[in-house]
Design a protein around this nucleic acid. Structure first.
Lengths: 237, 237
DNA sequence: TCGTGTCCGTGCGGCAACACACATACTGCG
DNA sequence: CGCAGTATGTGTGTTGCCGCACGGACACGA
């Protein structure tokens, strides 16, 4: 995790990009660009947060780790959202972890400054709350999907959600890590990904996944992906 | 669903009870008591909402119904919360359903009036947002629990969450309905509930569940119950 | 170029939950 | 009282995923 002091471009995050000019101007001095590497921990279970992060090219996973060490993802945030909602929702902390799933950049803002801007009740507040509602839908759909769908369907959903938040068709991600995200065995991912390769949807070589055919992925995925996608599109213009 | 015009007692819902007197006074004329029966639909998938509901004795389940008809619960709300968060989060609707899981009363408030009070940015807003954060934790934990835990553990979690939101030790609930909530087969509930009877934690007779030994239920449940409980206690004072 | 670590593929036994079928039992109503 | 409807219990075979073990393949540095 490395901070740079150069001027930031808020247009690279959809929430910041949607702000009216006067609010952007007010916020700009408080924004800082920051680089994340794969695996960086943005916040820990019930841990204090000094900043919120608006990803631009990075993707952050919200994970829960059980007492016995097994993990599962609740949701993920890219350039369409913000990490650290507990800071404006009022709780300060959340009982989960946020881990960088795909290396890249984010824009950060001090908690205090976020909170005072939020309290003004303008477009900033409105956007953050709408994003939070979209996130709730994503988490809900994860819950339902975990209960009712196969590993292969969930893998498709996850690949599509990640792909939507990336500029490229390549994901840097070992099967081991995907297994942790989905809360399944590594071998389960191997089998599912093997099938997706057979049908020509992806190619997978030692931690580099190429998305070859989104169409096929969408067909193989369950309805959960589309529900989440549509809801994000609806709520975030 | 039946509305009564008699004077309401906001103290029976924990959110309303936590408001300072001047805000209660302002809201009181806009509150109405309403009765729900088991199975009443509070709102439909992506359906319009005219009111928010603050349950007092009723319990409302947030459910998702798949295209193939199978269902699963994302969370539940009792006298510690509010149904209809989309109205103040800004989205207006949500892609799920809300169904009465346990008959009882709630206090309702018109959407418009909710929104104008929310916009004032006072304690009302603060409480609603903190509740929403607690709900996010509940939904998240449901997601994780669905992935990693057994039907029996989930049944315990569900019974405990419901029991916390009830005045009595008796739940009126067939195994069929519980199965829909948990997103499992009815027979799965029969087996799990049978075991819970064997160890003396509950008794179960044709749609009437008696909670006999909470201690045993908590021991059999996974950690998920406690995480949710602690987070609600922390966020809602 | 060789070794070591990482990553991916595969096979096997086991188990929990599934789908389906059906038996039992209680309940309320005519 | 008898019957229909609802609710619960049980049995059988199937399936999807798990845990574990291991083998091969590639990558990178000494």
């Amino acid at each position: 995790m490395r901070a740079a002091s150069r001027t930031v471009n808020p247009g690279k995050n959809r929430l910041l990009a949607a702000l009216p000019p006067e609010e952007v101007e007010r916020l700009l001095p408080n924004l800082q660009e920051i680089s994340f590497s794969l695996g960086d921990v943005v916040y820990e279970f019930s841990g204090h947060l000094d900043y919120v992060y608006f990803p631009t090219t990075a993707i952050i996973s919200l994970l829960y780790t059980m007492e016995n060490g097994s993990t599962a993802e609740m949701g993920l945030t890219g350039n369409d959202g913000v990490v650290g909602i507990a800071l404006f929702m009022g709780g300060g902390t959340m009982p989960n972890r946020a881990v960088v799933q795909s290396a890249g950049e984010a824009i950060r803002m001090k908690a205090k400054e976020l909170q005072s801007e939020f309290a003004l009740g303008g477009e900033f507040q409105r956007l953050l709350l709408r994003y939070t509602q979209a996130l709730i839908t994503q988490i809900s759909q994860t819950a339902v999907c975990n209960r009712l769908h196969s590993v292969e369907q969930q893998l498709c959903r996850w690949l599509l959600l990640s792909h939507d938040r990336l500029a490229s068709d390549e994901l840097i991600m070992t099967q081991e890590l995907i297994a942790d995200m989905l809360g399944v065995r590594r071998e389960g991912v191997t089998v599912a990904a093997g099938h997706l390769q057979d049908i020509g949807a992806i190619s997978y070589v030692r931690g580099r996944i190429q998305i070859l055919d989104r169409q096929k992925l969408e067909e193989t995925a369950c309805e959960c992906y589309r529900v989440v996608k549509d809801e994000f599109d609806r709520l975030l213009k």
